[in-house]
């Protein structure tokens, strides 16, 4: 049945999507290449540096062929911190959203904690968790936590009243209401929260890896900055951008499968 339209991407869309970065790189190239004392490296130098980071064979220095190691380290922190955030924020959000006592108990405190930026937690995190990966992990966790929590609360709180009536008159017991109605109805919001949370996890990874960890894309960006190896900084930035993009695409593909029923996602 062709009721469900396939989500096709037209060549025109691809062309338009690629146009902006191509123009950007062109502008970057024109304004940096051939200048004797440019602080910003030209795109080609960055490309060569990225190749050396990934596969070696160009500079053969301390950084050659280390990209995979750093990427894996960052990936494990991003997904680890994200998973932990989801594991805490999902049940907590459901409790806050559905149970008044829990809401009255925790919501005010969370509202005060929420505006504190992740960067502001950095010094405290390093005191509590020490210098190293545990602080990084904590900061990523924090970055992913609030979007998941808030969207979960919103989702389970804003279930259309009519659906409860429909379930009740069809014979759903009180205990089953949560699984049969609340959770599926909240799924689009929860999903949005997870997607935003994962996005934030990538955003804060650099800050998280400013905590003195040895490996990670954030760590080499910080280290290269001190060594004025700006090509490495930009290579790290590009890698984070691409990985974040791919991970978001994967999440969205999952969403389209799970939320086929939702006009916003399907």
């Amino acid at each position: 049945m062709s009721v469900l339209g396939a989500r096709g991407i037209s060549p025109r869309q691809v062309l338009l999507a690629v146009a902006a970065p191509v123009l950007g790189i062109l502008a970057w190239h024109l304004s940096t290449t051939g200048r004797a004392y440019s602080l910003i490296p030209p795109p080609w130098d960055v490309a060569v540096q990225w190749w050396d980071l990934a596969f070696g064979g160009v500079w053969d220095d301390l950084y050659s062929e280390t990209l995979l190691t750093h990427t894996l380290a960052s990936l494990s922190r991003v997904y680890g911190g994200f998973a932990l955030a989801a594991a805490v924020a999902l049940p907590l959000g459901m409790l806050i959203g559905r149970i008044a006592v829990v809401r009255d108990l925790l919501d005010p405190t969370l509202q005060i904690l929420r505006p504190i930026p992740v960067t502001a937690w950095l010094p405290l995190a390093m005191i509590v968790f020490g210098i190293g990966p545990r602080s990084a992990f904590f900061l990523v966790f924090l970055g992913a936590f609030y979007p998941i929590l808030l969207n979960t609360i919103f989702g389970v709180k804003n279930v259309e009243g009519r659906l409860f009536e429909a379930a009740a008159m069809l014979g759903v017991s009180r205990q089953a209401i949560f699984w049969k109605v609340v959770l599926p109805a909240a799924l689009p919001s929860i999903f949005t929260g997870l997607r935003l949370g994962l996005g934030f996890a990538w955003v804060v990874i650099v800050v998280g890896e400013m905590t003195g960890v040895q490996t990670g894309l954030g760590a080499i960006i910080m280290e290269a900055r001190q060594l004025s190896r700006t090509e490495i900084v930009v290579s790290g930035m590009v890698t984070i951008g691409v990985l974040g993009f791919l991970s978001d695409q994967a999440v969205q593909a999952l969403g389209r499968r799970l939320l086929r029923w939702s006009p916003q996602h399907g």
Partner: peptide, 8 residues
């Protein structure tokens, strides 16, 4: 207003 479950 129907009250159907949109996810089913």
């Amino acid at each position: 207003d129907y009250g159907l479950f949109p996810w089913l």
